[in-house]
Write a protein that binds this DNA or RNA. Structure first.
Lengths: 296, 296
DNA sequence: TGGAGACCATGCAATCCTGCATGGCATGGC
DNA sequence: GCCATGCCATGCAGGATTGCATGGTCTCCA
């Protein structure tokens, strides 16, 4: 094959179905995707895609090379992983995928310590619940509230984080104080946009807000805190965040907090990479030192 | 990984050990190989090669990605093969015009490989020097020792084939050994009926037989080989044929063989049809694999 | 010892590729 | 109907990549 890179374009187009979407994921212009895929078809002498009204659909020929192409992708990832594993330098970028609360409470403080010793290590923190694929190397490291099981991933428990319901002082003054377990009918809720799927402990916390009206939905933790702090409603926050903000009060100060385990996920091959090892060590140190705060 | 194609360069350099050799195999300038491999190293953040006096040697990091890179290569081959296999037109007859020696040494072995994968492809091999007109579609493909220039034909060099003078052991025992360049007066020659017009290197070989008596003339290579093997005279044969027959000996074993380039000629617009592409690929694979044998 | 041959680094010019812009074509909401 | 949105084809200009040329190092061999 003249140009292996064409397979990368082929695969992405097969997944994205349109030139435009594939181009965005590949970070090139869509004309480039079209041209390279056409060239690939010409080279192979086979029509790989049917141009239908709803996008590019694989032909039989395209379908029949898909598996091999994915195999190739897997090997490409392997190449990358092993190269990364061989890299002992304490410099370069580490990409971390984490829930925003974990990013705030764990990753950034850990990074601050790490930066003192190794200023060459850069962090690319991708918060949000969108599950970046560690296996496909969309991130080097992930912090998750629910551990995935799969293949070559190394998983370890970092800490457990406390969550509780918070409201602003004046919100609590203006509303009839809720009773534990009695529901929040008549209350306003500040909700995270996407649910923390797969974290049962956390689910039980948000479930208790079910009866409340959703006054605010946001997909940014900062907005969430501000919403609660501004008296817009009751919200579930990590204790790190809630306790640190003087404007916030726990709704049930006497109840124990909800604990959710935080898991570190990393690909087996990159565990030896210098900068990644260093960051993992910093994360663990941070979790040890701040265990009390994190657990609430 | 930003550019999968870099892996192809990496692998080739790992095998070839020098930029120059790798570049020749990849059909690019060696500066390109150097630059792309360097870029790859930069991207991975790992030094893959040690630049030693005797070429590029894999570092530990390079060694550790080699297996995955080879895996990737295997998948690339799979992609290609399935694309070929998926083309529904991979059946029917391909008509090939070739000199008998090329047919024997290249076309038939290539066809054997091809037949494993695509048993529905049939070959119609028309040997002989009569120039079938590709342009007029008297054949789909031609293998020639002299490239025609004309219009819509696609021409590429397949390999170079070695020719040498052969005789049987007992013929050599019975005759005064000829001296290189001194002519063959008093010898018997086994000649191909029609001359290889247009292949100067070959002409020089047969020219040296000018002084010999023509003991046998034949227009079949099989007859030619048999004639030489039976001690009827000295004949110019491809090294493939001559070296493979235990009854034959090179007349001048110490002289380098005469090399004649073998050209593949195909009409531009049939280049894309599946069965023809498949055969071309098989021909090229055969020439690559058997290059040493073909060159003598 | 010196010259040929093989190899590699670097500067520069031509080429190829990419991205942008325009325009055409669908779909869907108002 | 009409506009907004999303998609793709094609022409064109800028820029990245390539190949070539020069110059240097090393080895081998006469």
């Amino acid at each position: 094959m003249a140009d292996w890179d064409a397979v990368r374009f082929f695969l992405e187009l097969a997944r994205a179905k349109t030139l435009a979407r594939a181009a965005r994921r590949l970070r090139v212009d869509y004309t480039t995707v079209g041209r390279r895929v056409s060239a690939f078809e010409r080279e192979l002498g086979a029509k790989l895609f049917e141009r239908t009204p709803d996008g590019f659909v694989l032909t039989d020929a395209g379908e029949s090379i898909r598996a091999a192409a994915e195999q190739m992708e897997q090997s490409a990832v392997d190449v990358e992983q092993r190269a990364l594993g061989a890299d002992r330098r304490l410099s370069g970028t580490v990409r971390v995928a984490a829930a925003e609360s974990a990013g705030h409470a764990v990753v950034l403080p850990a990074m601050r310590d790490l930066h003192q010793r190794h200023p060459e290590i850069r962090l690319h923190l991708q918060t949000g619940l969108a599950r970046l694929d560690i296996a496909r190397r969309e991130a080097d490291l992930a912090l998750r509230f629910a551990p995935p099981e799969s293949g070559d991933l190394r998983i370890r428990r970092l800490t457990s984080m406390g969550f509780a319901l918070y409201a602003s002082e004046d919100y609590l003054a203006r509303h009839r104080p809720p009773a534990p377990g009695a529901g929040f009918a008549g209350h306003d809720a500040v909700l995270f946009d996407e649910g923390f799927r797969g974290a049962p402990a956390f689910a039980s916390l948000t479930d208790s807000l079910r009866d409340a009206r959703a006054a605010v939905r946001a997909n940014s933790m900062l907005s969430l805190v501000e919403a609660v702090a501004n008296g817009l409603g009751v919200g579930a926050l990590t204790c790190c965040l809630g306790d640190a903000d003087p404007r916030l009060r726990r709704v049930f100060p006497d109840l124990p907090v909800q604990r959710v385990d935080l898991w570190l996920v990393v690909h087996a091959d990159v565990q030896r990479t210098g900068r990644i090892r260093a960051l993992i060590a910093a994360l663990e140190a941070r979790c040890r030192k701040a265990a009390a705060v994190l657990r609430g």
